[in-house]
Design a protein around this nucleic acid. Structure first.
Length: 141
DNA sequence: GCCAACGTTGGC
DNA sequence: GCCAACGTTGGC
């Protein structure tokens, strides 16, 4: 069963353009147990990912990715405490679908990212939410 | 840069 | 196990 996710990253660290250039990347460095558990236990190859730029101008979904390797421990740990997945480039939105737009769009009210104080950097999404955002991204293109 | 919200740490 | 202090996230 294909699942849908939203993954946050600050543009200073990594952008959708970096992913386009690299083709794929390891999502290393997540230090939150909830996010870790999802990467370790729930994310599977082929799952769809909304790539979200946080602390950006404006913050929002900048493109799409997909899981190309399921959860595995970050290297160079004595004990495997932290896990990561690999994601591959799918597409880049011509314009960012801003957080403001997400908050204003019907059907996205329940997304974690639109909740006040939400800091989770890896979040589950639904197919319906994903489809709406893909449409918003295409509409702007 | 500010600061509210959140997660984690550590003293007790 | 409680909870204050601290560090981090992330919108604005």
């Amino acid at each position: 069963m294909k699942r849908y996710w939203l993954m946050k990253c600050e543009p200073d660290a990594y952008t959708i353009d970096d992913l386009k250039r690299d083709g794929h990347t390891s999502w290393e460095g997540v230090r939150n147990y909830q996010a870790r558990n999802m990467m370790r236990d729930d994310m599977q190859v082929g799952d769809a990912v909304l790539f979200y730029a946080s602390n950006a101008d404006p913050s929002g979904v900048t493109g799409l990715a997909k899981v190309v390797r399921a959860g595995y421990p970050e290297p160079r740990q004595a004990k495997p405490e932290w896990y990561m997945v690999d994601i591959g480039f799918v597409s880049r939105f011509a314009d960012v679908v801003s957080l403001e737009t997400l908050k204003a769009t019907k059907g996205l009210e329940k997304m974690v990212v639109t909740q006040k104080g939400s800091r989770l950097s890896v979040q589950p999404a639904t197919k319906s939410e994903y489809d709406i955002i893909v449409r918003l991204g295409r509409a702007k293109a």
